[in-house]
């Protein structure tokens, strides 16, 4: 790990100027950043710890939306009664990620910005455009079983690793940031960038911009859930995951939210599937058609072609379960 300085400011006004110079990173729980620093992938000169900025509150706003501070720990958020009750998909997504210890450390802001687990990104002897722009991508013709099939480019097929972001995507969450130029709001679906030719640039934050909160719109009336498919029963990244909310009236889909994890280069909101499902019949055939339509845009490699079938099967299974469980309650 490269040497660095450490600063723990007590208010945002002090944090942002400290966090703006090149070579500076904000530190939350450290569960991803410290690992990446130890691997030499991240080499900041300065760390600004944001856990002293009083960003660890969860509050219901007058319009019924929920404001979650960026420094709230993943375990705290998952257990929050309002989240358990109104945003079930988010609680389940958080609890399906990492381990009890890591969830106790990891923050919401850090989870938003966590980086891929593509093995070639982690291998210092491999070519990786995300790690070293222009070096190539060894995953294209290497072990790409864990890699993405949606949103990929010739430069990068690394999958986005977050579970939480998949749920936030389905929930239409809005990310609040503050930077040298003031505050702004970014829809979660626009926070992460597709890799294109610059997979090293992963999000739309500007220099010095700090995630201060995530705001969830008022709870949906629809039932929601998160299903994660992985190699181990626990403590493994998703091969495919589905965040879904479904409401059915008179056998018709009246409300649908669908997002995918493990298969996209960013948390993947399944707009195409949603479009096909909304107003249509709530049956397995329709679910399958929608799933296939969403995955029609997939670009597969030798090792990850199965993800198309897997994602489709998981979407269908999740929607079937939600309909059986009486979606709408």
């Amino acid at each position: 790990m490269k040497p660095f300085t450490y600063l723990k400011p007590h208010d945002i006004e002090a944090a942002i100027p400290a966090g703006t110079p090149p070579g500076t990173k904000y530190l939350g729980g450290g569960t991803n950043l410290v690992d990446l620093m130890r691997e030499g992938i991240e080499q900041p000169d300065h760390l600004v710890d944001i856990t002293g900025l009083h960003l660890d509150g969860i509050e219901e706003l007058p319009d019924g939306s929920l404001r979650i501070g960026a420094a709230v720990r993943n375990s705290t958020l998952a257990a929050h009664p309002k989240v358990r009750k109104g945003y079930r998909v988010l609680s389940e997504a958080l609890l399906s990620g990492a381990s009890g210890q890591l969830r106790n450390m990891a923050t919401v802001g850090g989870n938003l910005l966590q980086r891929t687990r593509c093995p070639y990104f982690y291998s210092d002897a491999a070519a990786c455009n995300k790690r070293q722009p222009g070096s190539g991508c060894d995953a294209l013709d290497g072990f790409n079983r864990s890699c993405a099939v949606l949103g990929v480019s010739d430069s990068c097929i690394a999958a986005h690793p977050s579970d939480m972001c998949v749920a936030l995507s389905a929930l239409d969450a809005v990310v609040h940031v503050q930077g040298p130029g003031g505050t702004r709001e970014i829809p979660l679906t626009e926070l992460h960038r597709l890799p294109g030719d610059t997979p090293n640039i992963e999000n739309t934050l500007e220099a010095g911009e700090l995630v201060t909160a995530v705001v969830l719109p008022p709870p949906l009336s629809a039932r929601s859930t998160y299903r994660k498919v992985r190699d181990r029963a626990s403590y493994a990244f998703a091969l495919a995951s589905v965040a879904a909310a479904l409401e059915i009236e008179d056998d018709k889909v009246t409300r649908i939210r669908l997002a995918l994890g493990g298969v996209g280069t960013k948390p993947w909101r399944a707009y195409e599937a949603e479009r096909l499902l909304l107003g249509g019949p709530a049956d397995e055939q329709a679910y399958r058609r929608a799933a296939e339509a969403e995955l029609a845009a997939a670009t597969v490699r030798a090792g990850n072609a199965f993800k198309v079938t897997l994602a489709e099967a998981t979407i269908v299974a999740v929607l079937r379960d939600l309909s059986k469980a009486g979606a709408g309650s």
Partner: peptide
């Protein structure tokens, strides 16, 4: 998880915790 300790009563992985923090 071999490095698990309790920090203010919560279990954490001490390997990913910077001591200064």
């Amino acid at each position: 998880g071999a490095c698990t300790v309790l920090a203010d009563g919560r279990r954490i992985n001490a390997c990913l915790a910077l001591a200064v923090a």
